Computed example of a mutant assay.
Amino acid sequence: MNDRRLNRTGGIAGLAYLVIASAAAAITSKPPGPHASNQSVQHFFIEYQGRLVAQGWLYALATGLVIWFAVAVRRVLYAASSGRHLGDLFFVGTVAVGALSFVSMSIRIVAAGAAAELSASAVRAVGTDFSLVLLALCGFIVALSAIGYACCVIPDGLLPRWTGWLAIVAATVNVAGTASVFVTDGPLSIEGGFATVLPVAATAAWYLGTSISMFTARDETLSQPL
């Protein structure tokens, strides 16, 4: 596969990842909030078992796409003056987050299948709280990959510099979101919504800008060796 085609397929993979991940997020109704009882959470997992399994399957599919996206973006970042190292930082961080999401969704599928036999508190702890805490703490890894990307793109202009600033915003919001593990109630708690929605939205905006920009990457960046 030539470099231009790799860039374009990487951009397509990034866009497809966002579409599939958005579809996965919307496949279930809004989950119970922080004030919901453990029994309400258990009932949610029992009622929406099929949808939760489909949601996990879609997220797993999206993980493969985001890895392909990361491969293509790293190829462009390697052309930066420090791209050999920072490009790897972006790639490893993106793959690590995808792998942890894969694990989280696998456990969520298992919790959905066993929700009727488990205690209500166990369903909440394993099926909801574990996944949300893992997503929140992944903010540190997302931030590292975003900083690596920004440090390649902003100085060298390999891709539009505004995508580097989107990465900076994503890094800031994701690190802030990790603090939700210390909040036990309200909209900023793990189950409150804002602590997960805002980091995910900021990261999605960065990925969207980068995916679109991959179609117009400068020709000279494509001739650099891996």
Rank of each mutant, 00 (worst) to 15 (best):
P160E: 14
D156Y: 02
R124F: 13
L135D: 12
A114K: 03
G127K: 01
V133I: 14
C152R: 00
V92C: 06
L118S: 06
S101K: 00
T128L: 14
M105F: 11
F140S: 08
G157S: 08
A136S: 13
L134G: 07
V123L: 14
C152K: 01
R161H: 05
R124A: 12
S119R: 03
F102S: 11
C138Y: 02
A136H: 02
F91A: 14
L137D: 11
L100F: 14
S104A: 15
C151F: 11
S145V: 05
C138S: 14
L135N: 05
V92P: 05
I107G: 15
L158S: 11
M105H: 05
A125N: 07
I147W: 02
A116V: 09
A150N: 04
A80S: 14
R108F: 09
L118D: 13
A114V: 05
L134E: 15
I107D: 11
F91Q: 07
P160R: 02
A143N: 08
V95F: 08
A143H: 03
V153D: 11
P160K: 01
A125G: 09
S131K: 00
L89K: 00
E117T: 13
F90C: 06
S101N: 12
G148Y: 04
A111G: 08
P160G: 11
L89T: 13
R161V: 12
I147R: 00
A116Y: 03
F90E: 06
R108G: 14
G87I: 01
G113Q: 13
A99I: 15
T94M: 13
L159G: 09
T128N: 10
I154W: 09
D88G: 07
V126T: 12
A150R: 01
A99S: 10
V92W: 12
M105I: 09
V95L: 09
A115N: 06
S82K: 03
G98Y: 06
A120E: 15
T94I: 08
C152N: 08
G93K: 02
G127E: 13
L118N: 06
R124P: 04
S119D: 15
G157W: 02
A115D: 13
I141M: 01
S119M: 06
L132M: 10
V110Q: 05
T94R: 10
